[in-house]
């Protein structure tokens, strides 16, 4: 076996079935950016995810919703292996990047390289205690991109993508802590975008923000979806309905239902989903 095949999931020779559980009929590989297949995850002895399978569609927004403790953040954090920072975690199954099925949770796959390919924005805005410029450039520096012109160009591009360039272009050398919470979160989005990630993960990115800042981030996500594949965890169902193309509903570590957002919110198939989206619990 050569190194490349080790990175793929074991069933590399069998083509991916088109009808994946939960996938929309008629989807093809070309439109799928990533495929989660039968993913199980453990914190020590506690199993937090049970056989989750779902596609992530290319250049679309996929929302993961569910009551707190349902495993939605746990699932998201599998995508960039941030769980690996803690002792006693274990993955089974696969999250494969398409088209060539790079298994992000494969044992032979280096989590640091995964994080270089998959950007993440956290719940609380957490810019580094450095300047605005250095924050965005940090993702480039860790890849060894040091050329001044290239760094400046890509920082500017990322800040423009994150719709914050106009607000900070004249104070790039100022500490990031001087920005407002909403600006900080957009800065974190720019930081994640600068290295041009395959996937952008957003973990409840607006839960610490006020409504106006939230609206700005939401419209930003809308615009970004044309260029980058986004997976967002949110506890706010309205947000999921507004910005996502597909929605996954999770409960107790299991994927209950996956579908187009409109379908999930208007005609959910599972009773639990119906109860949740109509606000009966959660």
């Amino acid at each position: 076996m050569n190194a490349a095949t080790q990175l793929r999931s074991p069933a590399v020779s069998t083509p991916l079935p088109l009808a994946i559980p939960g996938a929309i009929p008629g989807t093809t590989d070309a439109q799928i950016r990533a495929q989660v297949s039968d993913l199980n995850f453990w914190y020590g002895k506690f199993q937090a995810l049970h056989g989750v399978s779902m596609p992530i569609h290319d250049r679309q927004v996929t929302a993961i919703i569910g009551p707190s403790g349902c495993g939605k953040s746990t699932l998201l954090r599998c995508f960039n292996r941030i769980h690996d920072l803690y002792l006693g975690v274990r993955y089974e199954g696969a999250i494969e990047l398409m088209p060539d099925r790079l298994n992000l949770v494969g044992k032979a796959v280096d989590p640091i390289l995964v994080r270089l390919m998959v950007g993440m924005v956290f719940q609380k805005p957490n810019p580094f205690p450095k300047s605005i410029f250095e924050n965005v450039a940090s993702g480039l520096y860790v890849r060894g991109i040091r050329n001044k012109g290239e760094v400046e160009g890509r920082v500017e591009h990322a800040l423009k993508q994150a719709a914050i360039w106009d607000e900070v272009s004249d104070r790039l050398k100022k500490p990031a802590y001087e920005l407002s919470g909403g600006q900080q979160q957009r800065l974190c989005i720019a930081r994640a975008l600068a290295p041009e990630p395959k996937l952008l993960l957003l973990d409840e990115p607006t839960s610490a923000l006020d409504p106006i800042a939230t609206a700005k981030i939401e419209s930003l996500i809308d615009d970004l979806a044309e260029q980058v594949t986004i997976v967002i965890v949110t506890h706010n169902m309205g947000q999921a309905a507004r910005i996502s193309d597909h929605t996954a509903f999770m409960h107790l570590g299991k994927l209950v239902e996956f579908g187009e957002t409109e379908q999930i919110f208007t005609s959910p198939q599972a009773e639990q989903t119906r109860d949740y989206v109509t606000g009966r619990y959660g």
């Binding site: 390289l113 994080r115 580094f128 205690p129 974190c188």
Partner: peptide, 23 residues
């Protein structure tokens, strides 16, 4: 040191020593 700093530094793909030394 806030745990968030650690996660965000690892989140950009820094290795353990880079996280320690730079952040």
């Amino acid at each position: 040191v806030p745990a968030g700093l650690r996660e965000s530094a690892y989140g950009i793909g820094a290795n353990q020593w880079q996280v320690m030394w730079n952040y």
